Amino acid sequence: MLNLNDKKAQIDDILDRMAEGLQLGDARYDRMKQHYEAVKNWIEKDEKFFKPFNYEVYPHGSVRILTTVKPIGSDEFDLDIALHLKTNHAAHTPQKIYQELKRRLMEHETYKGMLETKKRCLRLNYSGDFHMDVLPGIQEYEWDEDRLCVPDRELGTWVSSNPRGYAKWFIDRANTVKVSLLEKAIRAENLPADNFRFKKPLQRAVQLIKRYRDIYFQDDDTYKTSSIILTTIAGIYYTGQESIFDTVEGIINQIQSNVSRLPHRIKILNPVNAQEDFTDKWDSEPAYYEAFKAFAVHLYNEWQELKRENGVLNEGRILKGLFGEDNFINAQRAQTELLESYRNRRDLGVNRETGNFVKASTAASTAIKTNTFYGEKKVFRK
């Protein structure tokens, strides 16, 4: 799915394949879906409180906006679920909604041993696999189907939230570009559309930046930057680039500019609720902001190195460091299989100056011979 004369398309193809490799495997995704459906059914069968209400249970977060990333090592993936009641929130206290959900989950023989209370949600720990955060809430306004009042257990008050509205905002931002660079490459090379998952550059960029974050903070995650901050920054700073490479570059350039230019910390507000500052912890615990700045500067510097014409070996070294060696190798292997199909058609060459793959007819290129067994011409005898 790449134009052999376009280096940016070649790198985008590698980045896309790496992002695809970061997604949750089908087996884990199916397990999560089954557990989500089971929890949903258990809540729906409650006779004591929930059954009379009109409500929805739906996923939000990275699963909804298609930016999931497999955890590294023993880390667990988090599945965010909203329990959205459509009733008058003034008729219920925050403590009541929270305690009723806790009561219902505690009535389940399995769930009661997995339950962990959090500030605004209740967590079910599926040990060694993932955890499910169930956020209870009541629709804040009748005329807005997305905004919720959620209980803050520590404050004992309702807090405005909008997880579904946030997902809509992000998807709208991702859809700023109608046809990505890789989609155009498919059409140019006349390849079948099912060779490509058609995720937008912004979604791929978020996956890659989150993976770099995981690697960067792997040894010490005390002040690790949260996914909601990185996702929101990416959505705010995205300006509709068609390529994954340009999207990542545009985001990190904006971060670098603001971090170095502003005399105060950058502030990342919830785009669908300006009263909520996702980065308010950076005031009370400045070490989080300092860690974010160091993380952003390192990514910026590595990306500048990647932009230089240093050949495929150096580019591979940088990409391995940013997004993981195994992930890069698997993506490179997949791209090589595609390039092998070009080689077999004798369309493939190598640029003598950069080492990048190009069409064999391109100036300053050397054609690559068709592969044969041990480099010898195959002779078939009767």
Rank of each mutant, 00 (worst) to 15 (best):
A234R: 01
H84M: 11
I215H: 01
N327T: 13
I186K: 05
K210Y: 03
I266N: 02
V63D: 08
E76M: 12
E183R: 07
Q275T: 14
I236P: 00
L306I: 05
T176I: 11
R28K: 12
Q207E: 08
F278Y: 15
R31D: 15
L124A: 01
Y300N: 06
G355C: 07
M132Y: 07
P192M: 06
S127P: 05
D326M: 10
P136A: 09
N258P: 02
K168C: 06
F49Q: 04
T87N: 09
R31N: 13
T232K: 02
H84F: 13
R64D: 12
R123Q: 14
T231C: 05
P136C: 07
K281T: 10
Y288I: 04
Q207C: 03
K293I: 01
K45D: 14
Y238A: 00
D220S: 05
K210E: 03
Q203K: 03
A360L: 03
Q304K: 10
N41F: 09
K224F: 08
S361Y: 10
A193P: 06
K168A: 14
D16M: 08
L85E: 00
V358R: 13
A19C: 02
A234G: 04
K320N: 03
V248G: 02
I228T: 09
T110N: 11
E337M: 14
T110A: 11
F49G: 02
D16R: 10
D144E: 11
D277L: 12
R120V: 04
Q139H: 05
A19Q: 00
R28F: 07
T222N: 06
R153C: 04
Q256W: 12
K102Q: 14
V312E: 11
D246G: 09
K7R: 15
V134S: 05
N5D: 15
G61P: 01
I233N: 01
G235A: 03
I228R: 08
V272W: 04
E315H: 15
A174K: 00
E305G: 10
L135R: 02
E56G: 08
H92M: 13
K378V: 14
G156S: 04
